[in-house]
C-alpha cells in the first residue's frame, strides 16, 4: 500500500516538474546544437557553475544581503505606516476616508519608476532614496487592502460584538482585526512582490551593491555568465520570499477553509 502511495506521489511530482525539466534540457542543448549563441545566452550548466563560484567567493552573499536589507527596511516602514493608516481610514473616520480616498487612489496609481528621479532628487542617490522608493511602492497594496478588508467585514460580526457589550477598542481587536486579516495579508504579500521588483529597478539605476547592481555591472563588463547568475538568483530569491509569505499567511490564518483554486 505504502509503496503504491509513494509511486503515486512520485508520478505527480514528475508531471509537475516535467515542463521545467524540459525547458532546462532544451536550453542546455540549444547552444551545443548551434541554435543560440552561448556568448549571449550561456547554457544552464555554466550559469549554475557561476552561481556556485559566486557563492564560494562570497560575492553573491554580499549582494543578496545588501538587497534584502533594502527590501526589508522599505517593507517594514511601509507596514508601519500603511497598516495603522488603513485601519484608521477603514474603521473609524468615514468622512476622512471620503476626503482622502481620491487623492490616495491617484498617488497609488502613479508609476513608481517615474517617481524614482524625484526620490533621488529629494533623498540623494544613497540608500535612503532606494529604501524610500521601496517604502512608497509597498504601502499602497497594504493600505488599499486593509481599508477594503475592514470595510467589507460582515456586519453580523459587528452586531454580535456590539450585542455582547464590547468596547470600541475590543470590537476592533476581537472582531474587525481578525475579520479583515485575510485581505490585509493579501496586501502584504502583494507588497513583498512589488518591493522586490522595485528594488532591482532601483539598484540598476544607481547603486554600488545589490543583485540589481550585479546584473547591470556584469552586463557593462560583458560578463554574461555572471549576469545570468545574478538574474537566476533574483528569481530564486523572489520565489523564496513568496514561499515564506505564504507560510506566514497559512500560520496566521490556520482557521481558514482550504479551497482548491
Amino acid at each position: 500500500m505504502e509503496s503504491k502511495e509513494f509511486i503515486k506521489k512520485l508520478k505527480a511530482y514528475a508531471l509537475k516538474s516535467s515542463a521545467i525539466v524540459a525547458f532546462i534540457l532544451l536550453w542546455e542543448a540549444a547552444p551545443h546544437l548551434g541554435l543560440i549563441d552561448p556568448i549571449f545566452i550561456p547554457p544552464p550548466s555554466i550559469i549554475a557553475a557561476k552561481i556556485y563560484q559566486l557563492l564560494l567567493s562570497g560575492e553573491l552573499l554580499v549582494h543578496t544581503v545588501a538587497s534584502l536589507e533594502r527590501v526589508f527596511l522599505g517593507f517594514i516602514i511601509a507596514l508601519a505606516v500603511a497598516l495603522p493608516l488603513g485601519f484608521l481610514i477603514g474603521g473609524w473616520f468615514k468622512t476622512f476616508e471620503t476626503a482622502v480616498d481620491p487623492l490616495l487612489q491617484i498617488l497609488g496609481q502613479a508609476n513608481p519608476f517615474t517617481l524614482f528621479p524625484v526620490f533621488m532628487a529629494l533623498l540623494g542617490i544613497g540608500e535612503l532614496s532606494k529604501i524610500g522608493i521601496i517604502y512608497w511602492v509597498c504601502q499602497w497594496p497594504v493600505l488599499f487592502n486593509t481599508v477594503s478588508g475592514i470595510k467589507s467585514v460582515d456586519p453580523v460580526y459587528i452586531k454580535v460584538g456590539r450585542s455582547m457589550g464590547l468596547t470600541k477598542f475590543n470590537l476592533f481587536k476581537k472582531v474587525l482585526l481578525p475579520a479583515a486579516l485575510p485581505a490585509v495579508f493579501t496586501g502584504i504579500r502583494m507588497s513583498a512582490v512589488f518591493a522586490f521588483f522595485m528594488l532591482i529597478g532601483a539598484e540598476m539605476i544607481g547603486a554600488h551593491s545589490g543583485l540589481g547592481f550585479l546584473i547591470i555591472q556584469s552586463e557593462a563588463v560583458f560578463n554574461m555568465p555572471k549576469m545570468y547568475a545574478a538574474i537566476v538568483s533574483v528569481a530564486l530569491l523572489g520565489i523564496a520570499i513568496n514561499y515564506v509569505m505564504l507560510k506566514l499567511e497559512r500560520r496566521a490564518m490556520s482557521w481558514k477553509e482550504d479551497v482548491a483554486v
Binding site: D154, V156, Y157, K159, V160, S163, V175, P178, A179, L181, M253, W255, K256, E257
Partner: peptide, 11 residues
C-alpha cells in the same frame, strides 16, 4: 441574540 446564520467567528 442568536442570529440567522453564519454569525460565528470563523477564526
Amino acid at each position: 441574540i442568536v442570529f440567522q446564520q453564519n454569525a460565528l467567528f470563523p477564526w
